[in-house]
């Protein structure tokens, strides 16, 4: 038996580290996390691996003020649904931001952080969080109009 979390994190490392999902070549829809079957095309679908650019906007968000033990050190923290430029959404923390500045529509980019520790002696799960785009992230602060980002 594997130590808690080890295999379950390991088998998702590519997806979590690099925001790798898939794209259906039949219908052009992007999926994250990667899916085994395109729900639009089913058996006609052709899913190819796709690494997302890691840019998007905040679709909705909240400030978590009651959290599991692993997140206590970070409280209060911002978690959001992010709409990636490719059109798919995912759930991630927003870091490097003042809570009062977070807004729906805010332009964000992915960064690499610790997601969770499985106890003090357990493994550390790393992966994507998001931060506001700004000069220091190497991105324009202004949102890119929809459709022009590709």
């Amino acid at each position: 038996m594997a130590e808690q979390g080890v295999a379950s994190v390991w088998r998702r490392i590519k997806a979590i580290y690099t925001i790798q999902g898939n794209m259906c070549e039949t219908c052009g829809t992007y999926y994250f996390p990667p899916r085994p079957v395109c729900p639009e095309c089913r058996r006609k679908g052709k899913l190819e691996l796709y690494t997302f650019k890691g840019l998007g906007t905040i679709y909705s968000f909240t400030v978590v003020r009651q959290a599991p033990e692993d997140f206590k050190r970070q409280m209060p923290y911002v978690i959001a649904q992010i709409e990636l430029d490719e059109g798919t959404r995912l759930t991630a923390q927003i870091v490097n931001v003042d809570i009062k500045d977070v807004k729906i529509g805010m332009r964000v980019r992915s960064c690499f952080r610790k997601i969770k520790e499985f106890g003090p002696g357990g493994i550390i799960a790393y992966g994507y969080k998001f931060e506001p785009t700004m000069k220091v992230t190497g991105h324009e602060e202004k949102p890119i109009p929809k459709g022009k980002s590709q």
Partner: peptide, 24 residues
């Protein structure tokens, strides 16, 4: 859990997403 909970989205947080979006 693998794609919401593990990333820090508690159950109230998910409903808060809905609330915030409904307000918006």
């Amino acid at each position: 859990w693998e794609w919401e909970g593990m990333f820090g989205a508690t159950f109230p947080a998910l409903y808060a997403f809905m609330a915030r979006r409904h307000m918006y």
